[in-house]
Design a protein around this nucleic acid. Sequence first.
DNA 1: TTAATCTATCACTTGCCAGTTATATAACTA
DNA 2: TAGTTATATAACTGGCAAGTGATAGATTAA
Lengths: 117, 117
Amino acid sequence: MSTAWTALADPTRRTIVERLAARDHTAGELGAGLRISQPAVSKHLRVLREAELVTVEPLGQRRIYRLRPEALDEIDDWAREVRDFWRQRLDALDTEIARGRRDTHPAQPTERTDDEP
Amino acid sequence: MSTAWTALADPTRRTIVERLAARDHTAGELGAGLRISQPAVSKHLRVLREAELVTVEPLGQRRIYRLRPEALDEIDDWAREVRDFWRQRLDALDTEIARGRRDTHPAQPTERTDDEP
DNA sequence: TTAATCTATCACTTGCCAGTTATATAACTA
DNA sequence: TAGTTATATAACTGGCAAGTGATAGATTAA
């Protein structure tokens, strides 16, 4: 079972997700235009299913794939969190500067402390 | 050269980015607590550099790593775009429904059209 | 200078992943 | 019914990516 990150790391799967954002597609429709074999498409769809980025509904012999955009939350929640941390960091730095310290780099390998994060 | 997507697909590298969001770190600090060898850390940092997610500044024998949060744009621009498409799709569907059509599934494998996207 | 420290690179191994062909299963069509 | 179509799975291959230990290069400490 894969995560949204690993599922979306693959450009082919991102293409599939982009198409599904516009409308639902059958597996065959998704395969058309993707210069890879039908089984390869099927495997990409499996990965997207397991990452819960898409759902499937059988319609006769076809399978209708539909995007589940909530699954993208994992991605941009993370990105937002990282940015928030970054902003806090900047704010803290500004505060220190305002206080008149000249302690510019937060990195601060603190003289002789041995490598602890 | 790797993209932000492939760089962030790896959980170890996401951890590194999270730490760098809070403050700058030396390579050694980042390695501490990451139960992998020093060369492994160095390679992760190289990937992050090549994806331009981080910058480095030498300070004596150490290397100070700093996050470049702009590189995250690639990620959430994509996510936002996908969501926007999805929303347009929903809006279009609502419109059709408002018009009284009963043409529910946009997938529409249109009877006998052969697989074109 | 010599020794120790920090980081990167080299050479190599291993495991996973995307691709393939062949085949199975199910649902339509004639 | 038999034949075709749509999709998934099985079995395999090749390449790449992440791990390792060994080593190089540069800086700091003695």
